[in-house]
């Protein structure tokens, strides 16, 4: 047995941070996750878009400082139709199941038995995909655009795309706060004494 390579240790360490802060945010709770779709608790949107904006702006800053070479970061390849259909099926699964894969792992380890069942379903669903792959291979490879970004697709500079997403997120956060305030009802746990 050789020891773990440096990159595996690194992945383990980053995973610890990822799991820790997902749990801190409350995203190990299916009821809280599902509340996103009933507009009663928009933590999913807020956490996700704050993380996206932080990494996006951070990358731009590190790149400007010459610390990170953006060209060396692996950009996922785009396949429009399979990712559109995949997103639609995933969205149905998310609101029905209540966890996504990462948050399912968080829920599982904090004792949520429903999360264990959801993750078991994910194992089964991945198995079904692999078994059906001969039938799906053509669609899986359909409509390839390669590794392409939104600013490249629209034909604007990268920094303009970054600013647009930051502005979109800012507007989204303001809207999310307004929507949540509308839904605030006194719950037994946080009622003030009369």
């Amino acid at each position: 047995m050789t020891g773990l390579s440096e990159s595996l240790w690194l992945a383990l360490f980053l995973g610890v941070g990822f799991g820790f802060f997902l749990e801190r945010a409350g995203l190990g709770s299916s009821v809280k996750l599902a509340a996103q779709f009933y507009l009663t608790d928009l933590a999913v949107f807020k956490v996700m878009f704050t993380a996206i904006v932080t990494a996006l702006v951070g990358l731009a800053a590190l790149s400007a400082l010459g610390v990170v070479d953006l060209a060396r970061i692996e950009l996922p390849r785009t396949f429009v139709l399979p990712q559109l259909v995949g997103g639609l099926v995933f969205g149905v699964g998310f609101v029905v199941g209540g966890y996504c894969p990462g948050t399912g792992c968080v829920g599982m380890v904090s004792g949520r038995l429903d999360a264990m069942v959801v993750v078991a379903g994910m194992l089964a669903g991945s198995f079904v995909f692999a078994e059906a792959y001969p039938l799906l291979a053509t669609f899986y490879q359909a409509t390839p655009l390669g590794p392409v970004t939104l600013p490249e697709l629209v034909g604007i500079p990268g920094w303009a795309g970054t600013l647009a997403v930051v502005a979109l997120a800012g507007g989204g956060f303001a809207l999310a706060e307004r929507i949540e305030r509308r839904h605030v009802l006194p719950s037994p746990g946080c009622q003030e004494a009369p």
Partner: peptide
């Protein structure tokens, strides 16, 4: 839901 997400 898990099956759908695993597949998707």
């Amino acid at each position: 839901g898990g099956v759908l997400m695993g597949f998707a």
